[in-house]
C-alpha cells in the first residue's frame, strides 16, 4: 500500500527539467514501450511503463533506488512506437541522470568515469596494441586524450558521480 501523502509532487517537475525528460507528462500509460522492450521481453523485472508511471505519481524513492532502472538498453524500440511521441529511452536516461545526481550511481559507471578521466577513452592503448596496429598497416592512435578532463571539470560531474 502506498499512501500518496508521502509522494513527492515535485519529482515529475524535476525530471522534466532534465535533458530527455521534457515530455514525461505526455505519458498516458498505454504500455507500448513495455510491449516493445527487448529487455522486458526477457526479464519482467524491468518495465519502462512502470518506471514512468511511478515517476508521475511522485514515488521518487522507489524509482531512484530501483536497480532495474539501469536495465534500459537504450535501444530506442520504445521511442519509435510511443503514441505520444515521447523519446522513452531518453526519458529513462533523464531519470538515470537524476538518480546519479541523488547519489544512486552504479559502480560500473564510476569505473567508466575514472577511465575516461584518465585516458579519454574506455580502453587503455598499450604499446602492444600500437605495435599490432603498425604490423597490420593501421595508422597510430593517441594513447590518451587529456582534453576530455576539461569537459569533466567543466560540467563538474565528478562531484556528482563520487557522491
Amino acid at each position: 500500500m502506498i499512501d500518496l501523502k508521502n509522494a513527492d509532487v515535485n519529482f515529475k517537475w524535476e525530471i522534466i527539467k532534465h535533458e530527455g525528460g521534457e515530455q514525461l507528462l505526455k505519458c498516458f500509460g498505454c504500455s507500448d514501450c513495455a510491449a516493445s522492450c527487448p529487455v522486458r521481453y526477457f526479464d519482467e523485472r524491468y518495465n519502462p511503463r512502470k518506471i514512468i508511471r511511478l515517476t508521475l505519481l511522485g514515488l521518487k524513492e522507489q524509482v531512484l533506488s530501483s536497480p532495474f532502472l539501469w536495465f534500459c538498453a537504450h535501444c530506442h524500440a520504445c521511442t519509435e512506437r510511443c503514441p505520444q511521441g515521447i523519446p522513452v529511452a531518453e526519458l529513462i536516461n533523464a531519470i538515470k541522470n537524476y538518480a546519479v545526481e541523488n547519489g544512486f550511481c552504479p559502480e560500473g559507471y564510476k569505473v567508466q568515469f575514472d577511465l575516461l578521466k584518465k585516458l579519454g577513452r574506455l580502453y587503455e592503448v598499450e604499446d602492444f596494441d600500437l605495435k599490432k596496429r603498425q604490423k597490420l598497416g593501421l595508422p597510430p592512435i593517441d594513447k590518451t586524450i587529456p582534453e576530455v578532463v576539461k569537459i569533466l571539470e567543466y560540467t563538474g560531474i565528478e562531484k556528482v558521480v563520487k557522491r
Binding site: G20, K96, V100, Y109, F113, L116, T155
Partner: peptide, 17 residues
C-alpha cells in the same frame, strides 16, 4: 587526431557531459 571516446558511456550519468 585527438579524437576521444564518443561520450556515450557517460550518457546515463550525465547527458550533458
Amino acid at each position: 587526431s585527438g579524437a576521444s571516446c564518443c561520450g556515450f558511456p557517460m550518457k546515463a550519468v550525465d547527458a550533458e557531459t
